[in-house]
Design a protein around this nucleic acid. Structure first.
Lengths: 157, 157
DNA sequence: ACCGATTTGAAAATGATTTTCATTTTCAAT
DNA sequence: ATTGAAAATGAAAATCATTTTCAAATCGGT
């Protein structure tokens, strides 16, 4: 099991090496944390978590590594408007499920959902095709987000 | 014409007054700028523009007014990942056309489009209904964005 | 084990946004 | 029109996430 996890997490080695980047301890620990803790993690969340395994790490390295991973498409960077960016693995070989977001305008709560992706997909495909042609854009990704009031915040308003 | 514009821009008076906010010169000038310059304006863009009409304004007031307008739904706040927020009128009575974005991952260029909104609307309606029910969310707004490489940036990659 | 290039980490710098607080402005009541 | 309390403003300082700097440590091909 630990063995499986170990090799299961190694898939990104090739990606990095292939681009001439080195496999370093800080990078490994950061990737481990991203794998172990799903959700929308801030750079500091990750920093705190990584320190448990590798106390000498610097916040700088966390930021640099995240930037690298975002650039390689391994990690997504989100902004939910609370002043700090959030990071999350885009997908592993086992495939983290792509999802969209519901954001509460009052309390800032973010809910992930993935159950309407199939019906959304048809539209996305059609729209992407049209946009690609019209604007010469090569679309690689998308972001869909609904804003509103979450159940908890509706009573008070 | 100036007369028409004048009254045409006054629609938000009621909105503010209705919430107990006062109509002040800085707020009027900021709204004027937002009306005159479509696009994705940063707080500083707006500050610079406002200063031409009202040089004594402070950047602080611009931020505060924008926050107020966002809270009232008069202005949208976007984050395209370049470190500064962008603001834009959501709609006037004459109705600025709602649009979605194409964002180039390489150069950061942002293209507005609105020609697929109709076909997107069906999906949005269906999804919103489902999400509202399942999560008890009262959806008021949405954000759709495609990321990719713009035509200029594809040749070099 | 060695070496050059990459990566790291601590500290300082940056820069957008927010807070503070004394002064000015708005507007309902007079 | 005048007044006065409450709201809004603006200058300066503070905040705080992120980036830059640079000397020391690490990586990986030899």
């Amino acid at each position: 099991m630990a063995q499986h996890d170990f090799f299961g997490h190694m898939w990104w080695h090739g990606r990095l090496r292939g681009h001439g980047y080195r496999i370093t301890v800080p990078r490994q620990v950061i990737l481990d944390v991203l794998h172990s803790r799903e959700g929308h993690l801030s750079a500091e969340d990750i920093y705190i978590e990584v320190r448990k395994e590798y106390p000498q790490i610097g916040l700088t390295t966390v930021y640099r590594t995240l930037e690298l991973l975002v650039r390689m498409g391994i990690v997504f960077k989100f902004d939910f408007g609370d002043g700090r960016s959030r990071y999350e693995l885009s997908e592993g070989p086992e495939g983290f499920r792509h999802h969209h977001h519901l954001v509460c305008s009052v309390c800032g709560r973010v809910i992930d959902y993935s159950e309407y992706l199939d019906s959304e997909q048809q539209l996305l495909d059609k729209t992407e095709a049209g946009l690609s042609e019209k604007y010469g854009f090569k679309i690689t990704n998308h972001l869909i987000r609904f804003y509103g009031l979450c159940d908890r915040c509706q009573s008070g308003e």
